[in-house]
Structure formats: C-alpha cells, structure tokens
Write a protein that binds this DNA or RNA. Structure first.
Length: 599
RNA sequence: GGGGGCGUAGCUCAAUUGGUUAGAGCGCUGCCCUGUCACGGCAGAGGUUACGGGUUCGAGCCCCGCCGCUCCCGCCA
C-alpha cells in the first residue's frame, strides 16, 4: 500500500477522506489513553491520532512502542481537529489523521543527537553532524538548502538553454598543469609511472570547445584543488562554468547579470537591479582597500599623499618621498576602541609588513594620538575635511607602498565594520545585496622572490587592446580583460576575454612569463596548436556555485549547502575517507609507499 | 607550515583561585496520565572529564605531548 499524500498536504478540504501517509516519527506524545504521533517527510508534518477505544489492541501497542525517527506508514481518515486544538505552527494544523492501521517499516534506535528541536539541533557540534550526515540532512533547514541548491541548478540550466548554450561535460581525468593550485593526482594503471590529475577547472577544455565551434558552452562543473580548506573552500566544489565566442566583455556582463537576476528571482523572489556597477581595480583599492569590496556600508579610505608630502612627520613624508602613499580610514564612532582592539588592528598592519599602525582617537573634542604633535594646522584641517572627522571617530593611517597601504586599511575597514555590527551600531538587512563588477585588473603581478612576472588571473587572459604596446616597456601598467563579479564583499566569480592568437599566447608564455619554450609546448602545446586552426575570439567566466548557494541560504559556510562535505583536514567523518589501499592495488599501479602508512 | 578557539553523561552545557561523592536540561528506561503538539507528573540508569605523560598531599582545572573539530594567515594561476 503506497502513500496517498505527503505530510504537508492535508487540509480541511480533505476531511472524510481515507489517506495513507509515510514518513518519520517526528514526535510522539503518549497521554496514556490517546497517543499523538507527528509523522514527518521532507514536505512537512501531519498529526496522527491513535485512540484505543477505536483500534485493535495490537495496533495501539505498536503505537506505544514507537520511537523518534522510526519510519512508519499510517492509514486512516482525515478529520477536522476538535475545536480549540488546532496547531497554528504547522500548515496541516487544522486537521489530523484518525489512525486505523500502522506499519512500522523501520524501528529506529535512540539517535546520537536529537533533530526534532530546531534550536537544539542547530547547536550540535559539526563533527557530530558530519558523522551522521543523514540525520543532519533530515532537519528542515538542511533539506531547504538542498532544495534551494537544486532549484538554482535547474534555473541555471534553463537560463543557459534559453540563451542558446550547450552543457558539455569535460573530463575529470586530465593531466597535471603545475601552474596554479596544487592538484590531486591519480595513478594510471595502463601507463605505469604516469598520472592523471583532477581538473582545478575545465579552463583549457572550454577554450578548446570554442575552437571546436560550440560557440556557447556552460557546465555545472566539478573542480578539485588540493589546497588547505576554509569555511568557503572545499577540496571538491562546483562551478558554473561559461565560455562564449565572438563576444566582448559587455556580452559576458549582460549574460551573467541575466543569470543572477533569474537565480535571485527563483531562489528568493527578489528582483535585483541590473546592470551592476563597474569599479576599476585601482578605484576599488583606493576607496575600499580590497578588490572585492562590500558596498553595503561606507567608511571609504581617504588619500592624503599630497597633504603629507612635505610633512614634519617623517614617517609619512618619507613614505611619499620613496614613491609611496599616505592613506587614512575614518572608523566612524570607534574612538571607544579598547587597547586590545587597537592591538588587533595593529597586528593586521604588521601582518602586511607595516612597522605599526598610526591612529588618532577623537574624544572630548581632543585628538588623542602619539603622532598628532607632528601635524601642522593645514594637515589637521585637510584631515578633518577629507575624512569628515567628528567627535567619537577613530582615524587610522597606512603609509608606504600603494597596494600594501590600501590593503591594510581595507582589512581594518572590515574589522571595524564587524565591531560596529556586534555593537548593533551598524545594521545591514539580511536581504540586501550589492552587486558589482570589478574590472581593469592588472594583467601581470611581479614576484619579488622569483624576480619575474606572473599572471594575475591566468596566462590565457587577453590584455586590454590599447595596452598591448606596453607589454614589453611597462608590464605593470598593462590591464587585462579580466573581470570579477562581487556581491557583499564575496567574490562570486571571475573570468576574462582570452587570447585567441597563437603568437600573442606564445609571447605571453615565453617573453613575459619566462616559461621556457619546451615547457610551454609540453604543457599547452595542444592549445597553441588548436589556435592555429581557426580559433574564434572568445571569453568566459566561472562562478563559485557553492558560494552562490551559501549566500542565497544566508550561511557563512559552504559545508551547509553541500550534501556530504569534507572537514578542514579534508576527511569525511561519515565514510572515514580517505582510506588505505591494499598492497595489491599499489602493485597494480607500480607504486610504493615511502611515508608512514596509515591504517 | 604558522597562529587562535574548543573537546566533561547519548546531545547541549555547568562545575568558585587546584579541594569532599563531577551537576543541570534534553534524550534514554520504568510507572502514571484520553486532546497533546517542546505534552505533563513520579522514579531510575547513565562519566577512563578525547588520549598519553608530568607537577602537586590533592588535577576536569596547571605544564608538556598527542588526536579530533573549528576559525584565520600562508596557499587557492
């Protein structure tokens, strides 16, 4: 006998019908004479009533013996609840099922942790939740996350289908490309001594698909990176991967804005305004000290380089003389910061290599600071005017190299915002989303240790056309056709217009990145060759799907939106992976263990 | 690789500055209860304080090591 309804379906309209429900015992309330059982499935829950005056004794005894989370099937008649006993907390609360038959499909043992009380369940250790993930996922909050993930995946596929994209699967077994993230390697039995690597992204395949004439590609692609984990980083994760031919940056912006509009509408019923703001990289750093600014609050950085160029305060004027800058941040209302908080901010600064963190507390109409005695009246006036200084403010300074100075204050800006949020002085409504494109990234960054240039994004990124002549003369100033999409201080994704001319690509590899020709050929030869046989101009983007879902679910950790995530050490507490392999498996792979073997 | 936090009953947490027999709520077991919905009442069981050392008359508490979880830095083209 199959179920006739799910557990969030019965309403007063169903009164009189004989129904069968299947699900888990959410809770049992045994009043001695009558027993109430809430039967729950993924849709919701419904109350069943077991009345001894109306039932065979065996059935009633079975109901007495039920335990939480047992799986049962209940058949009976729907009836209106007696007056005054409705439960307004659940959608089925106006009715109940008068049980006639009960089948215990699986009698559950006492659970390692309770899942019926949402507040208690939310506090259970993550270790416990991961070890018994199948119990954790029964909680309505978790099934809601899985459902929302599914809805967004479906909306994504529908959207790209409507836009003429093809979803193409690319290989999981690829080869090692040592640039970039550390890879998971997979020994290849049929080619002893050789290894596959799991892709850190389908980057090269999707470009090849453009050469193949696919024109519009997307994929919900699994990617793998053997790097240390974070709340927003798992060793395997999912990207919405996109590539298009015969387009420029504007086409990517429009396509992704359309996608996010659809996704937000589907998931949250919210209309997000498009087009998104555009912010050049340099401006993002100058104003917010970070390349993924959170625009939900102000506290922008000020530039005081000119004001302090000839200052008596040698730390500032010296920094300017060395080609550096003087930047300042007004942490509004934070003059009350404790010694410990000032120290925490100083630690942020010293972590970036600064010698210290200069500050001014504006309290009782006075500037309290170890450095203010070096400031002239003009400098004070400029500070007051540029930073809008008022009573109760805390001013923080960074002087030195431009990027570092901006980044220091960018971190402190976020620290100050967190502090204000904790104090309830900065309120950001949970439904607020500030999207933007960060554009005009530098194509190249310089590695001081290795004394060479490396790609800020990846080596396939095309330079901005008018900057190409600078590649050899002034690489630092070359902008890449790279873009990031950012929401609320989170990098949702990034991409670029690619190089599609083999000579330009070869020049980037060999002349700029100083990759020896034979190495470039071994790693990327097939791509360079493909570009010789008719490569369309193309570009693309990849969005972090797990992060996207986490934002929509309002959770800080992507583990909450992945059905079976790994711990911070990359293990699975439920299956106990990774695990050892049999000696025979190693022999088949021509492998020998040298390190300590874990049993 | 580095830094911070946590680990006490099945779960969530207490336990005065190092001091008697390590407590509570929930869950579990038994009994009572015919309109509950976090049902209620009574009674009971349940502990190698993650693990291994050390200091001390005495350690859940202090020290060293180790394991696990977590957050951050490095890392993530």
């Amino acid at each position: 006998m199959k179920r006739t309804h799910h557990c969030n379906e019965l309403r007063p309209d169903h009164v009189g019908q004989t129904v069968t429900l299947c699900g888990w015992v959410h809770s049992r309330r045994d009043l001695g004479g009558v027993i109430f059982v809430d039967i729950r499935d993924r849709e919701g829950r419904t109350q069943a009533v077991f009345d001894p005056s109306d039932l065979p004794p065996e059935t009633f005894h079975q109901a007495e013996a039920l335990r939480s989370e047992s799986v049962i099937r209940v058949a009976g008649q729907v009836r209106r609840r007696p007056a005054g006993t409705d439960n307004a907390k659940i959608p089925t609360g106006a009715v109940e099922v008068m049980a006639r038959e009960l089948a215990v499909l699986n009698l559950a043992e006492p659970l390692p942790f309770q899942i019926d009380d949402p507040e208690a369940a939310a506090k259970v250790n993550e270790e416990m939740r991961l070890a018994y993930r199948y119990l954790d996922l029964r909680r309505p909050e978790m099934i809601r996350n899985l459902r929302l993930r599914h809805k967004v995946a479906t909306a994504t596929r529908n959207y790209f289908d409507e836009q003429g994209f093809l979803e193409v699967e690319t290989p999981m077994l690829f080869k090692s490309t040592p640039e970039g993230a550390r890879e998971f390697v997979v020994p290849c039995r049929t080619n002893p001594g050789l290894f596959y690597a799991l892709p850190q992204s389908p980057q090269q395949f999707k470009q090849i698909l453009m050469v193949a004439g696919v024109e519009r590609y997307f994929q919900l692609a699994k990617c793998f990176r053997d790097e240390d984990l974070r709340a927003d980083r798992q060793p395997e994760f999912t990207q919405i991967d996109v590539e298009m031919s015969f387009i420029d940056r504007e086409d990517i912006y429009a396509t992704i804005e359309g996608l996010l509009k659809r996704v937000w509408k589907t998931a949250l019923g919210v209309e997000i305004p498009t087009p998104f703001k555009r912010l050049p990289f340099v401006e993002a750093l100058n104003r917010f000290g970070i390349d993924k600014p959170d625009l939900r609050f102000g506290m922008e950085l000020g530039d005081l380089t000119e004001e302090f160029r000839r200052s008596a305060f040698k730390v500032f004027s010296g920094a300017v003389a060395n080609g550096g800058v003087v930047k300042a941040l007004n942490a509004k209302g934070l003059a009350c910061a404790t010694q410990g908080q000032i120290q925490a901010m100083t630690d942020i600064a010293t972590g970036f290599g600064a010698k210290g963190l200069a500050f001014i507390k504006v309290e009782n109409g006075e500037w309290k600071s170890p450095i203010v005695k070096f400031f002239g009246d003009a400098e004070k006036a400029a500070l007051t005017q540029k930073l809008g200084i008022e009573e109760g403010d805390l001013i923080l300074f960074a002087a030195g190299e431009w990027l570092t100075s901006c980044e220091i204050l960018g971190k402190i800006r976020l620290f100050a915002a967190d502090f204000l949020k904790q104090q309830g002085r900065l309120n950001i409504p949970p439904g607020r989303f500030e999207f933007l494109w960060v554009v005009d990234f530098p194509l190249l960054s310089f590695d001081r240790e290795q004394n060479r240039w490396y790609s800020s994004h990846h080596p396939f990124t095309a330079p901005v056309a008018e900057d190409i002549s600078l590649l050899k003369t002034d690489p630092k100033r070359v902008r890449g056709q790279h873009y990031d999409v950012v929401v609320n201080g989170v990098e949702l994704g990034g991409g670029s217009i690619r190089i599609h001319q083999p000579d330009v690509q070869k020049a980037i590899f060999e002349d700029v990145l100083q990759i020896p020709p034979e190495v470039a050929k071994a790693r990327f030869g097939y791509l360079l060759e493909a570009f010789r046989y008719g490569a369309p101009p193309h570009g693309g983007i990849a969005l972090g799907f797990d992060r996207l879902i986490a934002i929509l679910c309002g959770t800080p950790s992507i583990r909450d939106v992945i059905a079976f995530p790994k711990t911070a050490k990359g293990t699975c507490l439920m299956t106990d992976s990774p695990g050892a392999v049999e000696p025979k498996q190693l022999r088949d792979l021509y492998l020998e263990l040298k390190g300590p073997k874990k049993e």
